[in-house]
Amino acid sequence: MTEQRLGILGGMGPQATQDFYQRILDRTDASCDQEHLPTLIWSDTSMPDRTAAILGGDAEGCYRRLLEGARLLERGGCTVLAIPCNTSHYFADRLQGEISIPLIHMPRETVGVLAAAGQKKVGILATDGTVQTGIYQKECGARGIEAAAPPPEVQKLVMSIIYDEIKRGEKGSREKFAVIDKWLRAAGCGGAILACTELSVYRTYHGLPDYYLDAMDVLAEKCITACGYKLRMV
């Protein structure tokens, strides 16, 4: 049997990549080094900003960079690929067509968890790139779930937490998040997806109730099981 090796194409951002790998470690049922999942991490911090590239920049250049990273990990013997960046999944199906190892589709897997839980309407907290390209709306629609994107004034707060705070090494504003939370509940959302890995980092710092499903958590668990390892019971 071929040794399973997880490839993480990260650097989008680097703090999110570090947080993601910690979740892999935390959720693996391991009692010694040798029971953990062999992992190769390529933190490509020179990757163009995905939102800027998709919404008006060099989307093709961004895609080529992602493909280069994916192939690097594939050549490194990785048997499963994860990209802890939601916006980059705009390119996920195209990437999968050009590599021979499975790419775990974070938005698709996350929406699958919501569908299994019987959710009917959820809020999407993500970058402008993820929201405007409809990455999560498409996956939700395929599973009969209504996806609610924030209005412009609330979306600005989401982007501010991501870009002005977390990506700059700050912990994120509780006050801004409280406004976002108020809107979600007033809009009748039964829950919300943390659909940006910087928001996953925010959750690591501050903690959030189960109302929020963290796409990074879903991806971490799927990586572990896809490689044939067991999840630690929590």
Results as ranks from 00 to 15, higher is better:
141 G>P: 02
88 S>W: 01
217 D>F: 08
120 K>M: 09
111 V>K: 04
171 K>I: 05
194 L>C: 06
68 E>R: 14
54 I>K: 08
10 G>Q: 05
123 G>A: 06
128 D>R: 14
167 K>Q: 04
63 Y>K: 13
199 L>D: 14
51 T>N: 06
104 I>K: 08
146 E>K: 13
160 S>K: 10
33 D>M: 06
61 G>H: 13
230 K>W: 04
216 M>L: 10
167 K>W: 01
76 G>P: 08
81 L>S: 09
197 T>K: 01
221 E>F: 01
193 I>P: 01
110 T>W: 03
145 I>V: 05
157 L>R: 15
104 I>D: 02
20 F>G: 11
194 L>P: 03
118 G>A: 14
230 K>I: 01
183 W>F: 14
63 Y>I: 04
98 E>Y: 04
173 S>Y: 11
211 Y>M: 00
173 S>T: 09
198 E>Q: 09
5 R>Q: 15
74 E>Q: 15
37 L>G: 05
197 T>G: 09
24 I>D: 03
173 S>C: 09
66 L>Q: 05
23 R>I: 00
36 H>P: 02
179 V>I: 13
138 K>E: 14
1 M>E: 12
51 T>H: 01
96 Q>W: 09
177 F>D: 06
2 T>R: 15
162 I>F: 07
212 Y>N: 10
9 L>V: 01
205 Y>Q: 07
113 V>A: 07
154 V>E: 06
60 E>P: 02
110 T>G: 03
130 T>W: 02
152 P>C: 05
120 K>D: 09
127 T>M: 09
